[in-house]
Design a protein around this nucleic acid. Structure first.
Lengths: 96, 96
DNA sequence: CTGCATCCGGAATGATACTG
DNA sequence: CAGTATCATTCCGGATGCAG
């Protein structure tokens, strides 16, 4: 299996890369991600668990009943790939 | 909608990025892609149509009953993003 | 013989309501 | 606020069949 397929095993499922992109801004809470992404709550919970298991992000327990999700080094490493993909996406309306 | 989401609308579905990666080697025929990717034939046909509609690749009619699929400029533009994602995927076994 | 559509079972996804 | 349970819908995967 090539490296790209291995990467897609983790960030391929829907919402995964969007979650990481939001987290590049800094740690965010569950409700913040849900609102900004517009993702279904069950999918958000599922992806967060997968990404945590993959070592892309980790949960930071806060006071009371709140936690925050923050990228690990492995997650921050995705910044370049996300930037390139975003740059490509921004040029989709050009020269159409 | 952010640029990343727009990009994922096209290359998000399964096999899409894998197809483009194989095509970076040069134009390939349907059977070649099917064998090297191990993708189901129906999915391959579906993704190829979507990617063609998105202007990522185009069909080159060959002699007889064969066609080849080749990347357009827009498809070649994905090389950087694929390279970054592949690089990230290759580091997944490190420091595990 | 290559390219692709169709059929069907199963997995992934999405909307909503509910619990701690 | 954070996450789970449930159910409808769509997507995916494998086999098969048909057309050029």
């Amino acid at each position: 299996m090539c490296d790209l397929a291995a990467a897609l095993e983790i960030v391929g499922p829907r919402w995964a890369l969007l979650i990481v992109e939001r987290l590049l801004d800094g740690p965010q809470r569950y409700g913040d991600l849900q609102r900004e992404l517009g993702a279904p709550t069950n999918m958000l919970a599922t992806r967060l668990k997968e990404l945590e298991a993959a070592g892309v992000l980790r949960r930071l327990p806060l006071k009371h009943n709140t936690r925050a999700y923050a990228l690990t080094d492995r997650g921050l490493d995705l910044a370049n790939a996300i930037a390139e993909l975003g740059r490509w996406g921004s040029g989709l309306s050009d020269t159409d």
